[in-house]
């Protein structure tokens, strides 16, 4: 019992689990864009940084309450998502991917050159507002919200676009409009995640939001299982905790990570839980139990 309490109050574990929650929100945002709508985004970290800087600057200069700043960070990221989405979501597949990648790099370079963000020296002096409770309340709200959206008319329209854009269009769905809405939703969550990150680290540096970070979040979503909320959760949990566990192999860590990415794709190209949502996951477990029970009765 004492051991359990120790683990629960250990600041290191709390730190690691909080960070995981923050990145989970970002991954869920990307899940909407890539998993549900089927659009490539290789610049997700840029939206994190927009949300992070926006909310941090508001906290420092305007002293507005944190909840407000967090929402503002999310909305600012979504605004830029729409601004980028309008022209570029007409592009498809890889072209869209590479445009978002380019946008990500441009945002990073702009932050390096801006005075108010502290440039390359980074932005310090952000008060700590984030804690594990807030993060997991936001995580719960995000999952609940996404679950509701995915099973709504809007969510089904997004999924229809992913499955076949032309067929969706002939069913009366305006793909561009829906894609932009989906993109805005995804980038909103990225912005929220960035705001939480800023008020957790208390120090921001543009170097933390390069394309390596974007691909890391993409990995969470893809390896976990595209189009699946449990998949995004599993992917984020495994991959964001892996570096902590693999610290003992130090320099071989990235070697294993790279090889694992290749192997995962070859043996499980849809990720660990590709296309599985909560309802199906539940059903699957239930069915399995049933079939086991059936087998048992048969044997009797």
């Amino acid at each position: 019992m004492e051991a359990v309490v120790n683990v629960l109050t250990n600041p290191y574990y709390i730190q690691v689990v909080t960070m995981m929650g923050i990145f989970l929100i970002a991954a869920l945002g990307l899940h909407v864009i890539t998993g549900v709508t089927g659009q490539f985004s290789f610049g997700h970290a840029a939206f994190l940084s927009i949300g992070a800087y926006c909310s941090a600057l508001m906290t420092i200069h305007l002293h507005t309450p944190f909840i407000l700043n967090m929402l503002a960070g999310g909305l600012m990221a979504a605004l830029w998502g729409v601004l980028l989405g309008f022209p570029s979501l007409r592009l498809t597949g890889d072209y869209l991917g590479i445009t978002t990648l380019g946008f990500g790099e441009i945002v990073r370079v702009v932050f390096i050159n801006m005075k108010i963000t502290g440039g390359a020296g980074g932005l310090g002096g952000i008060p700590r507002e984030t804690n594990i409770v807030i993060v997991y309340i936001v995580v719960a709200l995000t999952i609940w919200g996404l679950y509701r959206i995915q099973n709504s008319r809007f969510g089904r329209a997004l999924a229809a676009i992913r499955e076949d854009e032309i067929a969706a269009e002939s069913m009366g769905i305006n793909p561009l409009l829906y894609k932009i809405k989906g993109f805005a939703l995804g980038t909103f969550f990225a912005g929220i995640s960035g705001s939480l990150f800023a008020h957790m680290m208390q120090y921001l540096n543009p170097a933390d939001f390069g394309f390596a970070r974007s691909f890391e979040i993409l990995n969470y979503v893809v390896l976990g299982g595209l189009g699946s909320i449990p998949g995004a959760i599993l992917g984020t949990a495994v991959l964001s905790l892996a570096p902590e566990f693999l610290r003992f192999v130090q320099e071989y860590r990235m070697l294993i990570y790279g090889a694992l990415m290749v192997l995962m794709m070859i043996f499980r190209p849809h990720g660990l839980l590709g296309g599985i949502d909560f309802a199906r996951l539940y059903k699957k477990i239930k069915n399995k139990r049933k079939s086991v029970e059936n087998k048992n009765t048969e044997s009797i």
């Binding site: 490539f40 991917g97 691909f215 990995n219 893809v222 790279g258 290749v262 995962m264």
Partner: peptide
């Protein structure tokens, strides 16, 4: 496979 799978695989090779 899906369009994303070879991309992720390529990134894995790159990191490796």
């Amino acid at each position: 496979s899906t369009r994303l799978a070879p991309l992720i695989s390529a990134l894995g090779v790159s990191i490796f």
